[in-house]
Amino acid sequence: MTSFWNAFAKPANTLAPQESDGALHLHRLTNVALLEIKGPDAVKFMQGQFTCDIQEITISHSSLAACCTPKGRMVALFRIAQAKPDCYLLRLPVEVAQSFLAHLNKYKVFYKCTVTLLEDWGVIGLSGDLDSLPSLSSAVPTSADSCQTSDGLLLIRPPGNLSRMECWLDSAQASKLLPDLDNQCAAGAVEDWERLEVLSGLGEVYPQTLDEFIPQMLNLQALGAISFKKGCYTGQEIVARMQYLGTLKKRMFLLSSETITPAPGSAIIDETGARIGSVVRSAQGQTLAVLDKSAADGKVLRLEESPTTALQVLELPYAIEEVSNTKKKL
């Protein structure tokens, strides 16, 4: 947790959580952090490290993106947005923020830019009927990945069919906005927001799964997080070969896990006890897991840690174009 939450962790209201689907909830996302990359070489540096096309990131358009090893395995998955010219913010799990900061600092030696963990910024999530927010309704972005940017405040619409929005804000903006938002919204738990993320089919990379997945395994090609037209970046050869020459044998599925919330990296097994995949993230009985595609088709799936719990495959909220080429299997 960054120092931002020392001042803003407690809601200013006592509204009870609401049960209706349209009820507004404010989620203090103490589980994420923001990195800042800024300087005249920021775009050039990031273009050589990240899977998305940085040239397409503007003050009105954000993107999911990944950073990979030379072998194409992800060391971080994050959302990136532009705060101002030559200044970009990356939102990612707080558990990997420091390791990713160290990773980026190894590569930026020859670039005129800085990479910093922002201690005076935080992220809140708003879910429910966003049009009923008097203080922000005119600024609510309406399409996936779009954003509204002002000094010290970024409003970002995540992909998916659920009505929700991320607010990235500094301490000054938090002092202005949070009291009113607390009075307009019921308090929502981090776990509730995590469930919305899972239901939206949005994966994540945690310390338990560092260097485990290539981007296509987490369906990033379906979420606009990979550019196959930009120039080279670290891991690009592996990612491109998979898309054009390989056959993707594993990908991320949405599963119902009843009341079980397995940790990232937990094993998924079939009826014989053979491992066929691993958990990406999970919340409140909903789980995203990377599975062998053949094993996910009609077979009994279970958690190794709870073999009596059967997992059911659910439909993701987006279409996936299968990566399957006959020339070569990777």
Score class of each variant (00 low, 15 high):
207 P>E: 12
235 G>K: 03
213 F>Q: 00
241 R>I: 04
266 S>Q: 05
247 T>G: 10
217 M>H: 09
213 F>V: 01
243 Q>T: 01
248 L>P: 02
212 E>A: 07
250 K>D: 02
243 Q>A: 09
265 G>E: 07
222 A>E: 10
231 G>W: 14
247 T>F: 04
232 C>G: 10
239 V>I: 10
206 Y>V: 08
241 R>K: 13
212 E>S: 08
221 Q>W: 05
206 Y>W: 15
237 E>V: 02
226 I>V: 14
204 E>N: 12
236 Q>F: 06
208 Q>M: 05
206 Y>T: 15
219 N>H: 05
227 S>E: 06
242 M>D: 03
265 G>N: 07
234 T>A: 03
239 V>P: 04
217 M>R: 06
240 A>V: 12
244 Y>Q: 08
234 T>I: 14
216 Q>T: 03
249 K>G: 10
210 L>D: 00
217 M>C: 08
224 G>R: 09
232 C>D: 13
215 P>Y: 06
205 V>Q: 00
263 A>Q: 13
265 G>C: 07
214 I>R: 05
217 M>Y: 08
221 Q>E: 15
237 E>P: 04
260 I>A: 09
238 I>N: 02
218 L>F: 04
209 T>C: 01
207 P>N: 09
203 G>K: 06
263 A>R: 07
260 I>Y: 03
227 S>C: 08
208 Q>H: 05
239 V>G: 02
227 S>R: 05
235 G>D: 06
207 P>S: 11
251 R>T: 13
259 T>K: 12
261 T>P: 12
210 L>E: 09
222 A>L: 09
218 L>A: 07
